[in-house]
């Protein structure tokens, strides 16, 4: 449990490092983006490796933040006085998804463009804020070669600045309130003495995690390299059935299931509305979880948390299998 945050941090450092290396060669714009990615992958020494590690780090980052958040949810680490840590953590997850979404457009190949277009369509379906939100995310109504530059600048300037700021608040809050330790929080007496020293115990464990994560990234980079694809043409719209980014697959699958049972309703809109509602309940946990017993998780909370995880997991798997 303690180490999910550490893994997240390791992946974040990885992303910054590989991102800086990619920044040296990447050129934004309709005429250069695809060619520069091709150059990075084929001509720059180990460019393919840096790109693949950047890609897989981003995927694992979202997963590790989500895992970190799920574990904190069940441990009820969001309770007073750690509400700020929880809220900033939730915001960091949303920003990581935004990072991944904007980064997926940058290679400017048709697959990534179609995927981003499909993700945008899901976002646009959100009631009231959908269209405005999509406009702010992509800098226009649709993704074209013209706003690729906007998306790139958001990816390398705005998002890192926002992420760093929120991460700073997140860490400040941890520093002020201390690391969450359920044994200290919920138990008393001798068990409290079993506090892990930072050096050498915690440091060596973190280093072992670093080795595992790095090995995993290398295995993924070699066995599943990021493809170059065909250069994107923004005049062509995404064909029917194009899948959005993997982090939106569960929303798409939910929409499809709704559409299956009620063909006359707007499945996408209802699907994203349900997801937003569930997300709001989840993220606002510190506000509603005030009355339950301090040491024991409530039945509602337990089943709600498990249901959400199963729902996201199963819907994503079904969508992947259906696509395959």
């Amino acid at each position: 449990m303690y180490f999910s945050g550490t893994v997240t941090l390791l992946l974040l450092f990885n992303l910054i490092l590989t991102g800086l290396l990619l920044f040296l060669y990447y050129k934004e714009g309709n005429s250069f983006a695809y060619e520069s990615v091709e150059f990075i992958s084929y001509k720059v020494r180990f460019g393919w490796l840096v790109r693949a590690i950047h890609y897989w780090s981003a995927v694992l980052l979202i997963l590790s933040i989500a895992f970190h958040m799920f574990s904190m949810f069940f441990l009820r680490a969001y309770r007073k006085p750690r509400e700020i840590t929880w809220f900033t953590g939730a915001l960091l997850l949303l920003l990581a998804v935004w990072f991944s979404y904007s980064g997926s457009v940058l290679p400017w190949n048709s697959k990534s463009l179609f995927m981003a277009q499909s993700s945008t369509e899901i976002l646009k379906a959100a009631p009231l804020i959908g269209n405005t939100l999509a406009d702010y995310l992509i800098g226009g109504n649709v993704i074209t070669g013209q706003n690729l530059s906007f998306i790139y600048k958001v990816h390398i300037l705005i998002l890192p600045a926002l992420f760093s700021f929120i991460l700073y608040i997140h860490f400040s809050s941890i520093k002020r309130n201390g690391l969450f330790n359920p044994e200290i929080e919920y138990n008393s007496g001798d068990e409290c003495k079993k506090k892990l020293p930072i050096y050498p115990n915690f440091s060596i464990r973190a280093f072992l995690l670093l080795i595992i994560v790095t090995d995993l990234l290398f295995i993924l980079a070699v066995f599943s390299p990021v493809e170059i694809g065909i250069k994107a043409d923004d005049m062509i719209t995404a064909p029917q059935g194009t899948m959005p980014g993997w982090y939106f697959l569960f929303v798409l699958q939910l929409s499809k299931i709704i559409h299956l049972f009620a063909a006359e309703v707007n499945g996408k809109q209802i699907g994203i509305t349900i997801c937003i509602c569930i997300g709001m309940v989840w993220f606002l946990a510190p506000l509603w979880d005030r009355i339950s017993n301090k040491s024991k998780i409530s039945t509602f909370q337990k089943y709600f948390g498990i249901s959400v995880i199963i729902l996201i997991f199963c819907l994503t798997i079904i969508a992947c299998v259906a696509d395959y």
Binding site: N201, R205, I211, I212, F218, I219
Partner: peptide, 21 residues
């Protein structure tokens, strides 16, 4: 090759950690 190398490092560190603890 690199995985073998990292597994050796991992194992060594893991044993060292157990010893310390």
């Amino acid at each position: 090759y690199s995985l073998i190398f990292s597994i050796i490092i991992f194992a060594a560190l893991f044993l060292k950690l157990r010893k310390i603890e």
